[in-house]
Design a protein around this nucleic acid. Sequence first.
RNA 1: GCCGCCGUAGCUCAGGGGUAGAGCACUUCCUUGGUAAGGAAGGGGUCGACAGUUCAAAUCUGUCCGGCGGCUCCA
Length: 636
Amino acid sequence: MSNLSVHIDGRELSVPAGQTLNDFFKDHEDLRNHDAVAAYLDGEVIDFHTALPHGGTIRLIMADSPEALPIIRHSTAHVMAEAVQRLFPGTKVTIGPPIENGFYYDFDSEHVFTPEDLRAIEKEMKNIIKRNDIFERSMVSSEEAKRIFREKNEDYKVELIEDLGVDEVSFYTQGEWFDLCRGPHVPRAKRIKAFKLMSVAGAYWRGDENRKMLQRIYGTAFATKEELDEYLNFLEEAKKRDHRVLGKQLELFMFNDEAGAGFPIFLPRGMRLRTVLEEWEKKEHYKRGYEIVSGPTLLKQDLWVRSGHWDHYRENMYFTQIDETGYGVKPMNCLSHMLIFKSKTRSFRDLPQRYFELGLVHRHEMSGVLNGLLRVRAFTQDDAHIICMPEQLPGEIKGVIRFVQDVMNIFGFDYKLEISTRPEKAIGDDEIWEQATNALKSALDDLDLPYEINEGDGAFYGPKIDVKLMDCLKREWQCATVQCDFALPERFELEYVGSDNATHRPVMIHRVILGSVERFLGVLTEHFAGAFPLWISPVQAVVMTISEKSVDYGHKVAETMQAAGFRVEADLRDEKIGKKIAEWREQKVPYMLVVGEKEAQENRVAPRTRSGETLEPMSLSDFMQRMQSEVDSKAL
RNA sequence: GCCGCCGUAGCUCAGGGGUAGAGCACUUCCUUGGUAAGGAAGGGGUCGACAGUUCAAAUCUGUCCGGCGGCUCCA
């Protein structure tokens, strides 16, 4: 057998053919390989127990590198699958990949897995890990592999092999147990040092709702116990910020089963927050040359047929009848805006027309996807349609993106951009799609903004730029979107008169900045953990009295501030100041104004900040000035 | 929509085939207290809804409504 030439750590070494990395490191104990989970051989991932297929440059994947995580998690999934099959004989295995925050494995089992089972499975996994098996790779012909799995009644695996359509497949064996798997895996089971099973959920075989519902067990694994704990803490932190919990605690919004699922009801404090946001947004739109318009919730069904919604979006819409005529509840605001454009003859001098509407839309979402304010059936879009000449398109798109940037900066959100291209179900010919997609790309290129491409993820009427904002816990949220539309102007025969006195067809941009006001409020709540910046805070200050002797003064302070336009509450209860502070702290109010006999005499307030700092008593007017400048600066 | 879990006072939750409990909140009284919860008494629930089983259902079964975690889809 010939030798292979291997580069590692800047050295060139000769290795007999057929050797594995493991063999190799045994022969070269001077080389550091401790805590590597796998390696790259000329860029191709290879594990420790696989014979080197050829020579080349080896780069180790150390356990503490981000690349190691999916490998560790994948191996953990295998261990879990073995544990499940040991504890619940007859369970069939399907697939078990690593995912963003861990891994899962889908099982087909008579037994219904419970949270208690997860603890038992974890225990069994620990026993398996103790054996410290090698994850050994072997190649098997597809025919032989199918025979083996058929014998074990693992029909899902047989199906997988058939669909792979290759002559040979790889197996990974740990002790007695093995699985069809591409790999790579960690060298030995003891490399799995920190894992936890998280939850059980239903999942369709191959994600197809027409196929069998399997049971999916989710788990996570990290290179070290510390990292696992850090992740679990992160989950705890996220739970504390849950907008559904905070929404109740801060009395922002509610749901009611008699009103219906997915229909949020805004409480006074939530509405204060919303009003501030919406009024601010209206001003920002006027500043940027938009006109505010408003259309009805119901429009005739024929109009929805004409727009294409009937053919492409019907299953998400609600319909009703008035007298003999069918009407549809709007799931989008564009139709009225097009009718507004058509309401008179437009000259090229009038373009672009920018129509903005805080429009309440209804969409029939599947019951299983509803989630607090983040996924509802009725929501308000900060929606605008820009109708312009084709040559104005790039400039308008850039304007929208700058608008998005401004808004994201105000709230301190980081964000990234994605362009989505033509989906399967679409209207308009390929040429138009390409033109529109290029307009979006060139706008982002001109602004020097990086973006990813999402093939086939566009709306049915045009490609789009999606803005994914990232909150302070690094979670991504879809909010702003900019969509190009050549189809609807065509369908509605929108026209303008050009400088040549001929009629031309304009193009349309659909765009939202916050997306859904409801969702944005949910995201904001989680981002700030309910401690909103002063300028949007539903309760900006609470006046609290030391004793009943100061009730009149406390009342006066609150009234004065309210008259000055601040959102203020008065806590005049016969309770000790410590208790009032404790309670309002839970409400995350930015300022508490303590007033007692001293303050009443001197016409002052004693402010306490949300962070717990007690400020020197100051006159009410000084305090209001201080507050106003903080509001004006929109400080975070 | 599908799979699993869940629904008890305004909130958070305990209990569980013989007719309901705690803490907080609420009301009243005592207390007049200076920056993270003073004390006492009291009121409040057809145990999500509707059927069924049973001498008896909040508890068991079924259907529906709603919530949570996923699958899938989207703002």
